[in-house]
């Protein structure tokens, strides 16, 4: 991978590429992409999420805990700025999560604000008509993006999408590029737990996954934490009563 694979363009693009590859290091680390996204737009933090078939698949990287929370909430709840940016195929801007556009993200916004995010922005990661996911930016204070910040975010999302594909192009056949796994969270424990619950309920994986999510939502816990309990055999699902049983 070298810089020419990320395309040529105007001064804004050159500046971002220079930041990404400042020490001439290739391949570009996904973590560096998130850091530069936050730096050049002057945001508190940034993260990148992979999506497919309208469903979040996991986070490739995030700069900090709040950013990771924003991605995790979207994975758990299926709503938020990245999900919308991906589905609507355009940037999604929420300058004040505490007073959002009517009806926006009823489940997502409360925990996101409590976690420390006041303004959130989603930008699609795409190459031509090929959609990969979305870049999220957040700020701990409310406020709109300036035109400058908005333009930088668009260029950054474009570079990041191409960089992800360039990284994956070097992956072994059938596998995921090692560089993409490095800082990623693809929620493997949730899938392990879905398999266990499917065996417990003698149901399909899809039904088991829904039960897991419904339970996590009902007890207001992160899906990953509930999945951890299942895998540690501290929590079982019962087919007959529909009740959950917590082991000591």
């Amino acid at each position: 991978m070298d810089a020419t694979q990320l395309g040529k363009g105007g001064p804004r693009r050159s500046l971002i590429l220079a930041r990404l590859t400042g020490n001439g290091a290739f391949p570009i680390e996904t973590r560096r992409m998130c850091e530069v996204s936050a730096e050049i737009t002057g945001m508190t933090g940034a993260g990148m999420m992979l999506m497919s078939g309208d469903v979040p698949r996991g986070s490739i990287c995030s700069t900090d805990g709040v950013s990771a929370l924003i991605e995790e909430l979207q994975y758990d709840l299926g709503e938020g700025p990245c999900v919308d940016a991906y589905n609507l195929d355009r940037p999604v801007l929420e300058p004040d999560l505490a007073h959002p556009a009517a009806g926006r993200w009823l489940a997502f916004r409360g925990p996101a604000v409590a976690g420390g995010a006041r303004a959130v922005f989603g930008f699609p990661l795409q190459v031509g008509s090929v959609r990969l996911g979305a870049l999220n930016l957040y700020c701990c204070r409310p406020g709109n993006l300036t035109d400058e910040q908005h333009a930088d975010a668009l260029v950054m999302a474009d570079i990041a999408a191409q960089a992800v594909l360039v990284l994956q192009a070097g992956a072994p056949p059938g596998g995921l590029a090692v560089e993409l796994e490095e800082c990623a969270d693809f929620h493997y424990v949730v899938h392990q737990a879905s398999g266990m619950v499917a065996a417990q309920l003698d149901s399909s994986i899809a039904q088991a996954a829904i039960r897991l999510r419904a339970y996590a939502f009902a007890v207001a816990r992160p899906l990953a934490a509930v999945a951890d309990d299942v895998v540690a055999r501290g929590l079982r699902f019962d087919a007959r009563s529909g009740d959950m049983e917590r082991k000591p």
Binding site: Y188, V189, H191, Q192, A193, S194, G195, M196, V197, A198, A199, I205, V231
Partner: peptide, 8 residues
């Protein structure tokens, strides 16, 4: 991962 969970 799902199959691992099921077998486990």
């Amino acid at each position: 991962e799902q199959a691992k969970g099921m077998v486990a």
